[in-house]
Amino acid sequence: MTEEEDIAQSAARTLAYQPVQVTGWLAAGGLLLAGLAWLARGVWEIRLAVAGEPAAGPPDQGDGVHRPLNSLEDSYHLVSSAGGVLVFLCAMLFLSWLFRLRDNARVLSGDAPKYAGIWVFAGWFVPVVNLWFPRGIVVDAFRGSVPGGRLPTSVNVWWGLWLVGMLTGVGIVYRDSTDQIIERAYTEGWQLQLSDAFVIAAAVAGAIAVRAVTTAQVARIRGLQEADTRMAESV
Rank of each mutant, 00 (worst) to 15 (best):
I46T: 14
D176M: 12
V213M: 13
F88C: 07
R13E: 15
L108I: 09
E73N: 08
D60Y: 05
A91M: 12
R47D: 06
A56L: 07
M231K: 09
L108D: 11
I46M: 15
V139P: 06
N104K: 03
R230Q: 09
F99Y: 14
G165C: 03
V79M: 02
A216P: 07
A202D: 03
L98F: 02
Q61P: 01
D103N: 09
T23G: 13
F142P: 11
L72R: 06
P58T: 10
A16E: 10
R220H: 09
E183Y: 06
P152C: 06
E233L: 14
L194R: 04
A232M: 11
A232Q: 14
A40Y: 10
R150N: 10
S71P: 02
F88I: 15
I181F: 00
G35F: 12
D228I: 06
W162G: 05
V43Y: 15
S10G: 02
R143H: 02
Y174P: 00
L78T: 15
A112M: 10
G52P: 14
F94S: 15
W44L: 11
T153M: 06
L98D: 08
L48A: 01
L194P: 01
Y17L: 12
R41S: 08
A116P: 10
R184E: 14
V79H: 07
A91E: 12
N156D: 13
P59V: 08
P147C: 09
I200H: 02
H66T: 02
G144Y: 01
G144W: 02
V155Q: 04
R102G: 12
D179Y: 13
V20G: 03
F121W: 13
V107C: 07
A212I: 00
W25Q: 09
R220G: 09
D74F: 15
A201L: 10
W190S: 11
V128L: 14
D179N: 14
R150I: 12
S195W: 11
R220V: 14
A197I: 05
V213G: 11
E188C: 05
T14A: 14
V120W: 08
A197T: 12
E233P: 06
